[in-house]
Amino acid sequence: MNAKRQLGEFLQTRRSQLKPEDVGLATYGDRRRVSGLRREELALLAGVSSSYYSRLEQGQSSNASAEVLDALAGALRLDETERRHLHDLADGTRRRPTGRRVAPERVTPAVRQLIAAMGEVPTLVLGRHSDVLLWNRAGHALFAGHLDLDAPQRAQTRPNMAHLVFLDPHTRDLYVDWAAKARAVVGTLRMASGQHPDDPALAALIGELSVKSPDFSRMWVAHRVKSGGEPVYEMRHPLVGLMSVTQQSLRTELGQNVVIATTEAGSPSHAAMTLLMHASAAH
């Protein structure tokens, strides 16, 4: 992945999604040949020269200061998550590729203790490529009961959550609003690509999904990043039926995500989840 190209594509995509009226610009009925704002209009809003902004968007500059990036983020109406992503992309343009192999990911003893302490609360640990590094029995039952429970223990058989969401029929059927889950997965990968622009395994995953899934390819070019909050998904589990599940994410010191799935106490969803946990414990 080329960091300068990623930065330019992100800026261009977000610029095209803003209309003059969104930012208070008068058009006086002129015929516009571009969708969204023109480059010079965005540069004006951000307080930078049009030529300088054009070089950024065309991948010809890598020296944008934090102040300029914040000004562009404000002009583009980016939220805090998107603003951080913009800074990550700019940082990537200033780093020289090291050529060193990326160290294999590992789960620390402290995180293993956390997962063990979750008991019957479905929990899994996702790596920087959305690989499932670890899950408890409950997490396995909820997210991928059709796969081998021990699959995350071996690097060559580790499930990948992005791969499952886009290419695995079982996982696709789990989500009533599959598109919402898919967009969240793409947003997570977008953030990872900004933080690790020189990671060949991540680039290979994105390339594979782009080729094999038209849905992924379409969502990827939108340059959306995952927003904050705790998403609630309607999940249609083949064993217990419909459940409303909140998926919360905690970030570890190694940059991994601990995903915890919960249901509202006393709700039908909670009863269905409890039934699923009892069924999984019996196997």
Results as ranks from 00 to 15, higher is better:
Y175K: 03
R154P: 01
G145D: 10
A184D: 15
L164H: 07
L147P: 06
A144F: 14
R172H: 06
A203S: 15
A203Y: 07
R172W: 08
N160M: 05
L167E: 08
H146I: 00
Q195F: 14
Q156N: 10
D199N: 14
F166S: 01
A203H: 12
H140I: 00
P197M: 11
A162P: 01
A204Y: 13
M191Q: 15
R154V: 05
H196C: 03
T157K: 05
T188L: 07
F166T: 05
G194Q: 09
V186Q: 10
P169K: 11
A203D: 15
L149V: 03
P197G: 14
V185K: 04
L149H: 04
Y175L: 14
H140E: 04
V176L: 11
A204C: 13
K181Q: 15
T188S: 09
H196R: 09
R154Y: 09
A192K: 02
V185N: 04
V186T: 11
P197L: 15
G145H: 09
A184T: 13
Q156H: 10
D168T: 01
A184W: 08
Q156I: 00
H163V: 00
F143N: 10
R183A: 06
D168L: 02
L164P: 02
G194N: 03
M161Q: 11
L142F: 11
D148E: 15
D177K: 04
F143A: 12
A180E: 13
A204Q: 12
G194L: 02
L149Q: 12
A144I: 02
D199E: 15
P200Y: 14
A179F: 10
R190A: 12
H140L: 00
A184L: 12
P152A: 01
A151F: 09
L189K: 11
L189Q: 07
A180R: 09
D150R: 01
Q153K: 14
A201Q: 13
H196L: 14
G139K: 02
L174R: 06
A204S: 13
F166L: 11
R158N: 03
D198W: 12
F166R: 06
A141T: 14
P197V: 06
D199I: 01
V185H: 05
D148Y: 06
L174A: 11
R158C: 06
A203R: 14
A144E: 07
A155H: 07
R154S: 07
V186Y: 04
P159W: 01
A204H: 14
L167N: 09
F143D: 01
D199R: 09
L149N: 00
R172Q: 13
M191N: 15
L164W: 08
L174E: 13
A144L: 10
Q195Y: 10
T188P: 00
D199W: 10
A201P: 04
Q156P: 01
D177A: 02
H196Y: 15
L142E: 04
D168Y: 06
D177P: 00
G145R: 08
D198R: 12
H163Q: 05
A141R: 13
L202V: 06
D168A: 04
L167V: 00
A141E: 13
P169W: 13
D150A: 14
R172M: 06
Y175P: 06
L147N: 03
L167G: 11
T157M: 05
V185M: 12
M191E: 13
L167D: 08
T157Y: 11
D150K: 04
D168R: 02
A162M: 05
H170Y: 07
